[in-house]
Amino acid sequence: MAEENGISFIVSDRSFEKFGMALILGTTGDAMDVKMNFFFTFWGLHLLKRKFKPKSAGMFTGMKGMGGMMFRKKLGKFGMEDPWAMIKDAVENGNMKLYPCQMTMDLMNIKREEMWDYVEDPIGAAGFLELSANSKIVSL
């Protein structure tokens, strides 16, 4: 069902930075009672995997993994100890929905079972556009 005046975000990158943007906008939107769809496609699909640790895209080559861990630690000090628990809350409140893209899952051989169980069932391009009929669409 298309939501009135919601926001739909497209996430196509697996960096820590994009993850951070989805985390902060998603949880804040939940606090403000905004309905949001997050459509994960291409490399962004990795962010939905339980075992995936995002690396920093902006850090120097060779330092990207460490950069991701460093950011994570610092965000913990800012009060975000468990980012995925925060996202789970926003999903359970019904304001944040996480949709994996079926075609790119097949393309990249990423399985639904690798993802968190509060991720919605995969959808396609038409499904995402239908969901977003009354929403702003933003590519992160």
Binding site: I24, T27, T28, A31, K77, F78, G79
Partner: peptide, 11 residues
């Protein structure tokens, strides 16, 4: 000590 978005979420 807490930064955006924590004050908003906690409020």
């Amino acid at each position: 000590g807490k930064k955006c978005p924590m004050p908003v979420l906690m409020t």
